[in-house]
């Protein structure tokens, strides 16, 4: 049944493609109405060489703002679906005695003296314990993060921007969580910081628009920011785009990390990949 539907629908779509514009046709409907204006006017309007960035954060700023809010909503939905604030029953736990290297399994309800520093908690099912993996990740994570910041900051002149750089930044923290374990990653980059940064990113975007409103222009009309930056209105638009991109980058980074924490630990924030 499914195969018949798929075959019928697919052949119908293939028949429809005969009316589609050819590959690489410069006169196709998608390339004739509004996009020539973007290509020819972007440098004069916003002084941003990368047209994609200018369209993303300036001409279609509302679209991107609500896109960021969609990501924030996804983080909130994931949190509300999965997060367990209090564990229902005591669980079996594994500890390693550091001086001797012995592993202990503690039955349900049992616990260790908290003040002892000789024991470290390890995961029940999957123990990431590899010198090569840990050392490699420790070496490459700073470079991943620097590259991510470059992608965000250089989004005006080269392919890049808040979304891409934010995802790379988030990936660096996720690499750390995979190579060591979830608890040490939570110590470095906590759950609260993740959610706070996600909110702050969305707020920075909306506040940039609100600032334009306070200075007497339309919402997200960055040319009103010229007195603050001390530049002409056209350059102010590119500065406004940079502010917005930083907000997007923060929100996306925190969203990726928060989604990973929630999904990998099943909402317990205790053990995970």
């Amino acid at each position: 049944m499914g195969k018949i539907i798929v075959l019928l629908f697919g052949s119908f779509l293939v028949y429809c493609t005969l009316d589609f514009p050819d590959w690489g046709d410069p006169g196709s409907p998608a390339s004739t109405h509004v996009s020539p204006y973007y290509i020819e006017q972007t440098l004069e309007d916003t002084s941003v060489p990368n047209i994609v960035t200018a369209v993303l954060a300036d001409y279609r700023g509302y679209d991107t703002m609500f896109e960021t809010i969609v990501i924030f909503t996804a983080v909130a939905a994931c949190f509300l679906l999965l997060r367990k604030i209090k564990s229902d029953e005591p669980e079996t736990r594994m500890y390693r005695h550091i001086p001797t290297g012995t592993t202990f399994r503690i039955k349900k309800g049992g616990r260790y003296p908290r003040e002892s520093v000789d024991f470290e908690r390890i995961d029940l099912q999957w123990v990431p314990y590899g010198v090569v993996i840990k050392t490699t990740c420790r070496l490459i994570i700073p470079f991943i993060q620097i590259f991510a910041l470059y992608v965000i900051a250089h989004g005006h002149h080269s392919p890049g921007g808040g979304f891409q750089g934010g995802v790379i930044l988030g990936a660096s923290v996720i690499v750390y969580a995979i190579s060591s374990n979830l608890r040490s990653s939570l110590n470095r980059f906590g759950e609260r910081i993740a959610v706070l940064l996600c909110t702050l990113g969305v707020f920075l975007y909306a506040a940039t628009g609100g600032l334009c409103l306070l200075l007497g222009a339309n919402y997200l009309d960055y040319s009103a920011l010229a007195p603050i930056f001390g530049v002409d209105p056209v350059t102010a638009r590119s500065h406004g785009i940079l502010m917005v991109e930083i907000g997007v980058g923060m929100a996306v980074m925190a969203a990726m990390i928060s989604l990973y924490y929630n999904l990998s630990s099943g909402g317990k924030f205790d053990e995970g990949l």
């Binding site: 996009s35 290509i39 369209v55 896109e67 921007g161 979304f163």
Partner: peptide, 27 residues
């Protein structure tokens, strides 16, 4: 044409977000 690139740039990130919510529902 920059317009499809812009639209898909946001669509990719939203696809990741919907994937996260879908996996949370599955869990």
């Amino acid at each position: 044409n920059p317009l499809p690139h812009v639209l898909m740039l946001t669509a990719i990130v939203v696809a990741v977000a919907t994937l996260g919510v879908a996996l949370a529902l599955i869990i």
